[in-house]
């Protein structure tokens, strides 16, 4: 199968590794243009018409999300996004595995009909190895309705979670803002920093700069204690580098237990106070 890998800086070697698993005839390109959705859609469309691949592979980055579905639609196709594995049985077409229902289930998705097909891979799902030549592609002409300004960060972060040895992180299991002191007590007992999943910061229960995950901070403390966090991929990418991961969740099937080293299945409102008591007792 002929594969076209579209490479950006983020996830570059993972995309190349996946492309090599998917086909023997791999061509890899980066697009030699500042990004806008329109510019990249037409550039990669032009490239596809030139290379004529069966499969086009991307990293599932924010940039890919922004334009690849539009590109695929131009070819009458759906992007199979955020793929975690692929299976090739005897003959084409292959089956791609993606998570659904927030990681509670996996789905086998089979391609139908002729190429080009479009697949983006999840960060961390393929191990980077070897790196074939990446060529630069400059399209013949560029037009874009979007005008993009340079990326920026909000005012300096007040909290640097990356420096913390121990992090207690709280998720939607905490139910309401009034319950935050429950986990604060645990953080205090451990001398830990308090962090959170995105919905907690979205709701303003904790400030944005305590958010861990793909759109927040990436941390790798000695201990990360996830309290009432389900373990969505966007959260996991921010904390799975922690040396020891502890999960406290009432749902034994929560995906967070897949990356945890230790777990307590139970109601956080009983477990966390018990932990605090135990820590005080044995100090």
């Amino acid at each position: 199968m002929s594969v076209l890998a579209i490479v950006e800086q983020r996830m570059a070697s993972e995309v190349l590794a996946a492309a090599q698993q998917f086909g023997s005839d791999v061509k890899a390109y980066s697009i030699d243009l500042p990004y806008t959705a329109d510019a990249y859609t037409s550039a990669v469309e032009e490239l596809i018409r030139k290379v004529n691949p069966t499969l086009v592979v991307f990293g599932h980055t924010y940039q890919t999300r922004d334009y690849a579905p539009r590109l695929a639609a131009r070819f009458g196709r759906t992007l199979i996004g955020d793929v975690i594995a692929a299976r090739f049985e005897k003959k084409d077409p292959p089956v791609f595995v993606r998570q659904m229902f927030q990681g509670k289930f996996n789905a086998d998705v089979r391609l139908v009909g002729d190429g080009p097909h479009f697949v983006s891979i999840q960060a961390g799902a393929w191990r980077a190895d070897g790196s074939p030549q990446v060529e630069k592609f400059s399209p013949a002409s560029v037009t874009s309705r979007q005008v993009a300004e340079p990326p920026f960060r909000e005012a300096a972060r007040a909290v640097d979670l990356t420096a913390a040895d121990i992090i207690v992180s709280v998720g939607r299991g905490i139910k309401e803002k009034e319950n935050i002191p429950v986990v604060e007590a645990l953080a205090q007992a451990l001398g830990a920093e308090l962090a959170a999943s995105r919905p907690i910061c979205d709701a303003g229960w904790l400030p944005m700069d305590r958010q861990v995950g793909s759109s927040g901070q990436t941390v790798s403390p000695k201990v990360y204690i996830a309290v009432g966090i389900s373990g969505a991929i966007q959260h996991l990418v921010g904390m799975k580098g922690a040396k020891t991961i502890v999960a406290i969740n009432k749902d034994p099937d929560a995906p967070i237990f897949e990356v945890a080293h230790y777990g307590i299945v139970g109601d956080l409102f009983e477990v966390v106070p018990a932990l605090v008591e135990e820590l005080k007792k044995t100090k």
Binding site: R77, T78, A107, D108, V109
Partner: peptide, 14 residues
């Protein structure tokens, strides 16, 4: 409606 270019064949617990 055009036929889908990909079908969900199976759903299963990871």
């Amino acid at each position: 409606v055009a036929p889908p270019s990909a079908v969900i064949e199976k759903l299963y617990a990871p």
